[in-house]
Design a protein around this nucleic acid. Structure first.
Ligand SMILES: [Mn+2]
Ligand SMILES: [Mn+2]
Ligand SMILES: [Zn+2]
Ligand SMILES: [Zn+2]
Lengths: 144, 144
DNA sequence: TTCATATTTGTAATCATTATAAATCTGTAA
DNA sequence: TTACAGATTTATAATGATTACAAATATGAA
């Protein structure tokens, strides 16, 4: 849709990122697949069909500029790979130890409420929380 | 102290880990430097003076068996390195964006209370939380 | 002492990510 | 339109933490 592409174009312009074709397609992908919290590789694999010449470096470059401009945030759970989150609302995550998928968890975290700026004398700037367990899908799939 | 070494020996025996010299010295180091949440490299650097032949592989092997046996837990914040925590009580962490140090934060996290076993249909097995900010030491050191 | 087994070591491999420099694209001045 | 400076993309090499592997060494029971 041309209207959607205009939407993405505006998002990039608002963040002072030049809306190139690659950046638009990458943005489109992460917006429409927000719930998957994709890795760089997942983005690359999803786009290389439509853009056969795209390179991993471009994905990394793009995601790093998105990170710099605050368009996405990194989700770090395993330590083996960065996953990107377009959802900027404050929320937590759950990673399933069966399927590895990462889910958004919308619970009100008392610690995240903007109240306390200091804990134990340290200044708090960011609050992060995540769970590990078994996702609802894997629970359905029978045996533990 | 020989008494301390016996203490460490017993800790390893209780976990079914053979108390070799290397393992005892590594355990001693992480217990006495619990608050630093050391990396494999920090452990290696601290011990190579006393044990010149020690290798990084041994540190990794040892920490992996400590992890397997639940003697330590991994602290993953940056995604660039694993830090090890001997403190098994449930607690959170703060990493200072100035000095990079990791501090224990002992706050009662309502989410961590063993109550809820399920959230949004997912089974919760672990609750992790951490903060980013400026530690109290770096706050004292004048300019932001 | 002897031998099987576990531990430690040095080195190579892996994997995600970054660095680098060449190739390509884009927008604008002439 | 053409030419060109600057930005973007690409291919490739480098990096750094961790693991894989196989040889060397230590341990400890027979
Ligand atoms: Mn999310
Ligand atoms: Mn800790
Ligand atoms: Zn699952
Ligand atoms: Zn600090």
């Amino acid at each position: 849709m041309i209207t959607n592409m205009n939407k993405f174009k505006n998002i990039l312009k608002q963040k002072n990122i030049k809306p190139t074709y690659h950046r638009l397609k990458i943005l489109e992908y992460i917006v429409e697949n927000m719930g998957t919290h994709p890795t760089a590789e997942m983005i690359y694999d999803a786009l290389k069909g439509e853009i056969p010449t795209i390179s991993m470096t471009t994905v990394y470059n793009t995601m790093n500029s998105f990170l710099d401009k605050g368009l996405v945030t990194p989700v770090i759970i395993t330590g083996t790979e960065v996953r990107y989150d377009y959802n900027k609302s404050h929320h937590h995550h759950l990673q399933c130890r069966k399927c590895g998928k990462i889910f958004d968890i919308d619970i009100e975290c008392p610690l995240a409420l903007g109240k306390k700026k200091f804990i134990n004398g340290h200044r708090i700037e960011e609050v992060h929380g995540y769970f590990k367990g078994i996702c609802k899908n894997c629970l359905k799939s029978k045996k533990e």
